[in-house]
Amino acid sequence: MASGKEIRTQIKSVQNTQKITSAMEMVAASKMRRAQERVSASRPYAEKIRDVIHHLAYANAEYKHPYLIGREDVKRVGYIIISSDRGLCGGLNTNMFKKAVIDMRAWTSKGAEVEFCTIGSKAGGFFKRIKGKIRAQASHLGDTPSVSDIIGTVKVMLDAYDEGEIDRLFLVFNEFVNTMTQAPQVEQLLPVVATEREAELEHHWDYIYEPDAKTVLDGLLIRYIESLVYQGVVENAACEMAARMVAMKAATDNAGELIGDLQLAYNKARQAAITQEISEIVSGAAAV
């Protein structure tokens, strides 16, 4: 049986841990709220650019951009993986990596090679460990990620697509369902999948392009991809905070339970020691 003092030290250390986890929980909760606001703030742009792309699919364009044309023969597949920079957020990153790896296996079994671009240091570390080919990397975007942070990494992958080094591009990130649930998602970025909707604009028309179709569409589609990736980044940030909040709440609760158990053990040990002392005194007195 552990002595009273030993148990007391353990209780102290668990209490200290609990203080840290409960503080982290509160920090994550407030950061989550701000992250959610950023998700909703970035939504109008994503919606509008999707509308334009949608119109474009209907327009009778004289020029078809390579991003809009599917490639039959898939030799190489690119993934943009968005993860958090820090751990202590439950199974968030692990679940996403698992999903990415399953998806990746499906491609490799078909004989395609796989390349990565990682955003967030956890993804960088993981794909380095499994010896994945990493083309570009970005990390430490902080709590307020901006579009300019991801332009470079996205461009690397788009250039690879342009040069035929990859034939498909996917985005892997966590979708924020609610505080308790985050769902890992694999989304196809390239070639662009046009969403189907019934024809509202029946007559044939095309845009006036200024200065010319190619330049405008280039700019538009690059921004479209970037906006999808950015959306993924902010959504993933909200997920990270939510997952951390839940994980830290569980840790705090567990610590509380542990303290309760230890307190009980301490009281028992103390009681036993007192009883023993009394019986020693009594038996000593009886012997006299």
Binding site: T118, A136, S146, T153
Partner: peptide
């Protein structure tokens, strides 16, 4: 659809280079 950052071909290029370098550094 407004940009948040000033975009120019060479600036984008520089950002791409940086991202690539990071990956190589990590390697």
């Amino acid at each position: 659809l407004s940009d948040t950052a000033v975009r120019a071909q060479d600036l984008d290029e520089a950002a791409a280079m940086e991202a690539k370098q990071k990956a190589e550094q990590a390697l």
